[in-house]
Design a protein around this nucleic acid. Structure first.
Lengths: 336, 336
DNA sequence: CGTCGCAATGTAATCGGTTTCATGAACGTG
DNA sequence: CACGTTCATGAAACCGATTACATTGCGACG
């Protein structure tokens, strides 16, 4: 009866319960519409046979997959994995599975890394895009399932977006530094075409302009620890020497602090540093990092909810902007 | 022809190409067995219609899912996400998808958090278990797909395992500390029943015993930054005061260093600290951390390969132990 | 008492592919 | 020329569920 090589079908349950397969199906998916008697017989037969539905069969018939695909730029990056955790939360509550595709690791020989083949309604019921560098044409074909952009976004790709308030975050960081007396502030960015960096640059310059100052000088990083460390050198080469740096993420800020420390400088005495994201490690850095808090798991949940909402309602196409806040720790201080 | 609401079926392609559906199927899955003429006609019809196979239909017929499920204890933890990246690598090369289930976030009301329902052959072709705290009974039922345990493991659950050489890693750490003259060494562990911590404790005590020393004192942590910081207090309360700590992961080591620094102590002058894992951040900590390198992405790849091997060969049930190595940085020094 | 409506159920179509099996053509061989 | 073999192909079975549609029985109501 519990033969591993030959799992029970709905037929077997029906036979054992003395009803038709339709009744079994109904008893399992919508117990209210079958008689008490049938329901009990089916329940008994199910537990005796150890029956579980074959999801492939159900999905084929119902034309749905029961899974949502997340396109992440780099699965190994904790920033994204925390968003995934939030997505996973929401999906689970709906009985859906999470499919993950690491766009960094896609085949470099194939155009678009073979991502296209994953963007099919028969592979996923929806897609959450966390990579702003993808080609919008990827999603243009008819068989691409409903889509939500989260965290990063793609210029030229329509559809709902769930974003952190990057511009406000940048402004908060700069206003904080301005309030401490800093005037020569460098903005350590991600790759120049990165959408996050661009919108944060706007916030930076808006805050500076409001104080009657020119746009910030920029250094290009790569959101990595090592690019932060490398930025220390470029920063120190600058004359006159800046007194503060706003970094587009905490990793770069921590890398930068390590680089500055290695060069004999002190944070916050010589440089005030502000990060972005508030990763857990920031509170444990050599100098606890002042940063902009961004609720990543919440962002993931919101994105998933948006996606699920599309299943019923028509797509509202609106952008949801989640608030951020300044967390002041020890890496910023009054300009001496 | 490219009507988004009504994607082309294999029937449509067959009609357009002037062949039967069987021939289309063959032309797509095994071009060698159809005539050149038919193959070309099908290719043309496919590109004209924009046809893509419906995976649900294919999977139902072929009795496979095209996806592998990873059970991870905490998706937000970068340690696991890097393993996932490795798994993803290998699966992609085989055209398989990665399904992720965060066991931490499963429903606390349901027994086993509803994980059971994901362990079905109709949901995944295989399972990679990264959580050593799960109930082995979960995997006992007949419909559970082939399984590989990776990184952590479950006592009482058979099947192949891919593990880091925890015992050797611990021994290397302790021998390093012994070589520096330390004799009073504390082992900061994960949760006491954690399989990793248990096997590392064995390595610790073996190294100590080889030097004629008694087993190490232990402090229980939770693999988190905050539990590392909390351990600082317990450590300082100990008399006589230990001179070195071996931590079961780098996060706890970094947390511990933060706690010691806050209490006015210096690493490595007052305490030598060794971590485990070699996460990227360790090189950027306030004091660059001496640790045991573990190749997480590689471990993930190996686990996935093992799983795929089971598709053909019968399960060999053997444990694969991956080497680790000591990385000496600045957090350890000669005992003063 | 006839019939209308509703609840419960069964039969069979359906989802969209893959694969088995039968068929026919082409070819080589004795 | 008869026969066996291979190759290409199409018709139809099949995967295992859901669900549209038909049927039955029963109580209520005119």
């Amino acid at each position: 009866m519990t033969d591993p090589t030959n799992p029970p079908k709905i037929r077997d349950v029906a036979r054992l319960a003395g009803v038709s397969v339709a009744t079994v199906s109904r008893a399992l998916s919508n117990p209210a519409i079958v008689s008490e008697q049938a329901r009990i017989a089916v329940e008994k037969a199910v537990s005796e046979t150890g029956y579980t539905v074959n999801l492939m069969a159900r999905n084929l018939r119902q034309q749905q997959v029961g899974a949502v695909l997340a396109l992440v730029p780099n699965l190994a990056n904790p920033f994204f994995s925390e968003i995934l955790a939030g997505i996973s939360d929401t999906l689970r509550a709906e009985g859906l599975s999470l499919l993950v595709l690491d766009t960094l690791r896609t085949d470099p020989d194939t155009p678009n890394g073979g991502i296209r083949s994953y963007l099919s309604r028969s592979r996923a019921d929806g897609v959450i895009v966390l990579d702003g560098t993808l080609d919008p044409a990827l999603f243009a074909h008819g068989s691409c399932p409903p889509l939500v952009q989260a965290c990063e976004w793609i210029e030229g790709l329509a559809g709902p977006r769930v974003l952190a308030d990057n511009e406000t975050g940048a402004r908060l960081a700069i206003e904080h530094l301005l309030g401490l007396g800093h005037r020569d502030i460098v903005h350590l960015t991600g790759p120049t075409q990165n959408t996050l960096s661009i919108s944060r640059a706007a916030g930076v310059d808006a805050a500076l302009a409001a104080a009657g100052l020119p746009p910030a000088h920029r250094l290009e990083g790569a959101f990595t620890l090592s690019s932060g460390r490398a930025a220390a050198e470029a920063l120190l080469a600058r004359a006159p020497r800046p007194t503060a740096v706003f970094c587009d993420n905490d990793e770069m800020a921590i890398g930068l602090m390590a680089g500055l420390r290695a060069a004999g400088f002190d944070v916050p005495r010589d440089f005030s540093i502000v990060g972005f994201d508030n990763i857990e490690m920031s509170a444990y850095a050599s100098v606890p990092l002042t940063t902009i808090r961004q609720k990543r798991a919440h962002l993931g949940r919101c994105a998933a909810e948006r996606l699920l909402a599309q299943r019923t309602a028509p797509t509202p196409d609106e952008t949801l902007i989640l608030p951020v806040e300044l967390v002041i720790r020890d890496s910023t201080a009054k300009r001496v």
